[in-house]
Every structure is written in C-alpha cells, then in structure tokens.
Simulated assay, not measured.
Amino acid sequence: MDDGTSDYDYNTTIDDEEELLCNLDPSPAEVITQTYINSIICAFGLIGNALVIVTYIFYKRTKTMTDVYLVNVAVADLIFVVALPFIIYNEQYNWLMGPVVCKMLRSAYSINLYSGMLLLACISGDRYIAIVQARRSFGTRTRALIYSRLLCSAVWVFAVALTLPTLIYTERFEDPNPLNEPVTVTCALSFSKNETAMLVKVLVPSLQMGIGFLLPLLVMVFCYSSIVCTLLRAQSSQRHKAVRVVLVVVVVFIVCHLPYNVALLKYTLSLFKEKHCEAGKLQLRVLAISRGIAYLHCCLNPILYAFIGVKFRSHFRQILLDLWCFSKKYIYSTRSSRGTSDICISGFKSSDGSHNMSSFSV
C-alpha cells in the first residue's frame, strides 16, 4: 500500500547494502491510523463545507467579495474531501479504479492547496483595500462581485496549471518487491529519464512551497499587519469582529500547512545526498504525520465560521429550523402541514432579506 504522504514517489537514495533489506512501506498500525484519521476528516469536511455552500446559496447570499472567495474556498475543500475516500479505497485495493482515476485523485490535493491558499490571499487583499485603502474600493456591489468572480476564475485556472506536472507524470504501476513478496500497485510520479525525474521531483515541491504557501503567506502577513495597525488607530470594535473571522481562518490554515511544508523542504534538500534506511523511514513517517495535519484544514474552516461568525451561526440555526419545519410538513396532517409550511417560508425569507450586511464585511 502507498504511504499516502505525497503526490509523488518518495524513493530515497539508500546505500546498496541496505537496499534489499529496507522496507519503506508503513506498518499496518500506521496504515490503520491514517485510514481512520482520513475518514474522520472526510466526514466532517464533507458535512461542514456542504453546509457552508448551502448557507451561501439559499440563505446568506454572496454580498461581498470576501463572501465569493469563502464560497470558493469551501468548494476547493469539498473537492478534496470528496476525493479522499476514493484515495483511501484505492490505496488499500491496489488502485483498482485505473490510471485515469489515479491521476485525478493524486491531483486533488494540489488543486485544493493552490486554490485555497491563493483565495485566502485574495481575501486578505480585499480586507486590506476595504479597511486600509477604503478610498480605493471597487465602487458598487455589482462591480465588486464581478471583480471577485474574475479573480476566482483566474485562481482556479492558475491552480490547475500548477497541478499539470502531477497530472502528467503520475502513473499507476506495479512496484517490484525484492523480497519476493506480493507485488503492490502504486500511484505516484513515474519517469522514463533520470533527468526528468530529478527536475520534476524538485519542481513540484518547490512550486508547492513557493506559490502554494510562501507567496500567499507574505501577502497575508503584509495585509493583516496593515489592517491591525489601522484598526488600532480607529478603535472600532465592529471592525475588529469583522476581521477576526477571516484572520483566524488564515492563521489556522497556516498552522495546518506549515509543518508539511517544512517536512517537504527537508525532503527536497535530501534528494541531493545519500541517506540510510532508518533515516528514510523516519522521513516518511514525519511526512505522513504532517500531511495528515495539512488535511485538517478541510474540516476546520466550517467550524470556525459556525463558532466565531455570529451571523453565520444564525444562518446555520435557520437551516436546522427549516429542515425541522419541512420534515413536519410530511409527518403531520394537512392542516398542521399548512401552518408549518408558512413558518418555513417565512423563516427562509427573513433569513435572506433581513440581513443587509455580510458577517465578513466591515
């Protein structure tokens, strides 16, 4: 079974005497632990991000640029959590779903990473313009929404372009075992030339760390540092509350992805030197743990919206109320159904019409 720690093959340079005796596959206990953790992340991420999207579509509406960005972040997370159970299944059953699915599933995390981080950078830029450079706002709401949708489209195209090396070079192939054990099927980067292998194995993690993490991080640090300085001068509690939600989301995203990017950097540097079997095993173990932490962001964002955003909590409560109302409509008698239906329609309209300002706006 593949260790699931990366989109590409982590075969390391090991001394010739150790090569035949070194087994870099994770232990059964590690495999079971990873499976359970990924299953939990998938379940919570699927429910949470689906609720976020439903809330924006039917209750809250996308009224600001930040709202549009956050919907797209939820979509990016949802794409990955939908792919995650298929990744788990294929890793346990030798990638039975074929080479095309292998390529798509291995590309899911890269697309999620690039689009999610770049969208969070867009959010910080939007908040910077709205608070620090208020006079340079985009004007009307319609014009602002057009700008945000164009930026989101550009982010998605860019994320797909950056994922192309993973998509092109990922292959489903049989991994020969020197100990005459059953052959395992692997889905990882595969190359016909050593020069291409070294180039891509350095290029992919470098792009992931540079464009998918460091660049958005620098944008966020600059924007939110300026925002904090402006808010301290303005002494506005309302603005503090509006920025707090987005700021906490960004901090949690960084905390989730920083360990994996550090481990990925160490791996990239290790490509240029020999290492022993135990060092290779330790590196894979650290990558597996840090990558599991990186997966957590898919289910943490909706929790942050629910417990920090006051208006978002009210919309979640409205969803539960409407679900309860519509369920009663089909359980009780015709007279009871008519009364319940009126309550549900009234609740839906008030949720959409009475809130004129986004919970992420200032």
Score class of each variant (00 low, 15 high):
residue 148 S to I: 03
residue 278 E to I: 12
residue 250 V to A: 14
residue 313 R to I: 02
residue 347 G to D: 06
residue 205 P to W: 13
residue 49 N to I: 06
residue 287 L to Q: 09
residue 269 L to K: 09
residue 79 I to K: 11
residue 134 A to K: 08
residue 337 S to D: 05
residue 343 I to H: 07
residue 262 V to F: 15
residue 146 I to N: 13
residue 65 M to I: 09
residue 250 V to C: 14
residue 65 M to Y: 09
residue 351 S to I: 05
residue 224 Y to F: 14
residue 20 L to D: 12
residue 302 P to W: 09
residue 202 V to R: 13
residue 335 R to M: 06
residue 218 L to W: 10
residue 233 R to H: 13
residue 228 V to L: 09
residue 54 V to Y: 10
residue 211 I to V: 13
residue 220 M to S: 05
residue 260 Y to K: 00
residue 91 E to C: 03
residue 229 C to K: 06
residue 127 R to W: 07
residue 122 C to F: 04
residue 137 S to K: 12
residue 267 Y to A: 02
residue 314 S to I: 02
residue 10 Y to F: 13
residue 219 V to D: 00
residue 227 I to P: 08
residue 286 V to H: 06
residue 316 F to A: 07
residue 191 F to W: 04
residue 127 R to V: 06
residue 231 L to M: 10
residue 32 I to N: 08
residue 47 I to L: 14
residue 196 T to H: 09
residue 293 I to R: 00
residue 268 T to M: 13
residue 262 V to W: 06
residue 85 P to H: 10
residue 353 G to F: 10
residue 44 F to P: 00
residue 344 C to N: 02
residue 114 Y to T: 03
residue 29 A to C: 04
residue 232 L to M: 13
residue 231 L to P: 03
residue 179 L to G: 00
residue 257 H to W: 14
residue 172 R to A: 01
residue 249 V to R: 01
residue 346 S to K: 05
residue 290 S to Q: 01
residue 187 C to H: 03
residue 118 L to P: 02
residue 74 A to R: 11
residue 157 V to Q: 08
residue 285 R to F: 14
residue 281 K to E: 06
residue 312 F to C: 00
residue 207 L to P: 03
residue 39 S to A: 15
residue 282 L to R: 12
residue 97 M to N: 09
residue 154 A to S: 10
residue 169 Y to T: 00
residue 199 L to R: 11
residue 52 V to M: 13
residue 322 D to T: 07
residue 59 Y to P: 00
residue 191 F to R: 01
residue 176 P to C: 04
residue 261 N to W: 10
residue 356 N to W: 13
residue 316 F to W: 11
residue 16 D to A: 15
residue 228 V to E: 06
residue 357 M to C: 07
residue 42 C to Y: 14
residue 174 E to H: 11
residue 150 L to R: 12
residue 108 A to E: 03
residue 358 S to T: 05
residue 123 I to A: 08
residue 283 Q to D: 04
residue 199 L to Y: 15
residue 18 E to F: 12
residue 283 Q to Y: 03
residue 28 P to E: 10
residue 188 A to T: 02
residue 157 V to I: 11
residue 304 L to S: 06
residue 99 P to D: 04
residue 341 S to D: 04
residue 240 H to R: 07
residue 153 S to T: 14
residue 202 V to M: 04
residue 199 L to K: 09
residue 152 C to Q: 13
residue 294 A to F: 14
residue 156 W to K: 04
residue 242 A to V: 01
residue 24 L to W: 08
residue 252 V to P: 02
residue 75 V to K: 13
residue 352 D to Y: 15
residue 219 V to S: 07
residue 27 S to R: 11
residue 220 M to C: 12
residue 341 S to P: 00
residue 274 E to D: 14
residue 82 V to T: 12
residue 155 V to M: 10
residue 73 V to A: 03
residue 9 D to N: 09
residue 128 Y to F: 07
residue 244 R to M: 11
